[in-house]
């Protein structure tokens, strides 16, 4: 436990805050600490987590990606047309197509960054505008409802009946989220490529001198982000059963806030899957709790902003020093 706190101080602190909020909400509201509420929290936030772990890999490698939410929308539209062209498809083809298109978009970003030595924030802001503009122009802002049935039919992966008789279920996106988290965790913790990503984000010049292939790092990071953007887009359309060109705009900044809240460092070299999950959850639980407490929905976001702001302020004050004092006193 102590070694966990030392290795992942931000995550540990975030976890403590989350537990405190949960405790408070459990006491303040009857409906918070229920299986049904937790299930809906997971169902509703799975897409954000999928994107968050994708963005995490880019942040670890020292980059940033603003374009992934738009990329997800592009994937959704291209998928609709692709499935139409092949006459239906199914989940396997769906994941392959969505993931493939996502990776392609990620590779375009990586190629621009690497080939022309443009920093990632400039490239992704450019591709954000280019993709969003083209998408809106070509689709004329049209919504698509006639998605294939396999895509929109709800898939339950786990269900149980509570003592009160209501059904609690976890849907497919939660399983995909778990898969994305596990895969990302495996990549960044247990493969040489993943550790190279950390090294590259931490000290690019040192990584280059050690003989790490820089181009590979950019393509892996942005390719992974693209993959997650595509899969997240597929899941989003599955949940809302429609495709709307500008529905995902703005989500990129919310996800970015959650990931950085979870301990990933802007500038590279630090971050964890657990942190991403906790970061997304902190925001979600806060909103959920405010909702249950009967606070006006319009006030949620305001409070979320305050929470993020105070979390940042807290984590930048020297809490490490506090830990040292505590350890010294033992």
């Amino acid at each position: 436990m102590r070694s966990f706190i030392r290795a992942y101080p931000t995550e540990a602190r975030l976890f403590a805050v989350l537990v405190a909020i949960c405790l408070f909400l459990s006491l303040a509201s009857d409906s918070f600490f229920t299986l049904g509420n937790f299930a809906s929290l997971l169902n509703n936030n799975s897409v954000n987590v999928i994107w968050a772990v994708g963005l995490l890999v880019v942040l670890i490698a020292g980059g940033i990606d603003i374009s992934f939410a738009v990329a997800a929308s592009v994937v959704q539209y291209l998928c609709v047309y692709a499935f139409e062209a092949i006459g239906g498809g199914g989940w396997v083809i769906g994941f392959l197509v969505a993931g493939g298109i996502g990776i392609t978009i990620g590779f375009i970003n990586a190629a621009l960054i690497h080939r022309f030595r443009i920093i990632s924030i400039v490239v992704t802001i450019a591709t954000y505008n280019a993709m969003f503009g083209l998408l809106m122009f070509i689709t004329s802002g049209r919504y698509l409802y006639n998605l294939p049935e396999w895509w929109t039919n709800r898939v339950t992966i786990f269900e149980t009946q509570t003592a009160q008789g209501t059904w609690v279920e976890l849907a497919l996106p939660v399983a995909v989220m778990a898969g994305a988290m596990a895969a990302t965790w495996f990549l960044i913790r247990h493969t040489t490529t993943g550790r190279q990503l950390f090294a590259f984000g931490d000290n690019p010049e040192g990584a280059r001198r050690a003989g790490i292939n820089i181009a590979l790092m950019q393509f892996v990071a942005f390719g992974w982000m693209g993959l997650m953007a595509g899969i997240g887009g597929l899941m989003q359309a599955h949940i809302v059963q429609e495709v709307v060109p500008n529905a995902l705009i703005g989500r990129e900044l919310d996800v970015l806030a959650a990931v950085v809240l979870g301990g990933a460092r802007l500038g590279g070299g630090r971050g964890s899957v657990l942190g991403c999950f906790l970061g997304v959850l902190l925001v979600a639980v806060t909103q959920n709790g405010l909702n249950l407490l009967g606070v006006s929905p319009f006030a949620f976001k305001m409070v979320v902003g305050v929470i993020i702001l105070s979390a940042i302020s807290m984590s930048n004050l020297k809490l490490a020093g506090l830990v040292k004092v505590m350890r010294g006193g033992r």
């Binding site: 040489t192 550790r195 190279q196 040192g206």
Partner: peptide, 25 residues
């Protein structure tokens, strides 16, 4: 040319992480 965010062990054994083909760590 070390990696400040990584552990002492990873820094020392860094060269075992090199290579383009992904391997298990």
């Amino acid at each position: 040319a070390l990696f400040p965010e990584m552990t002492v062990a990873e820094n020392i054994a860094f060269d075992t992480l090199l290579g383009i083909r992904p391997r298990l760590v």
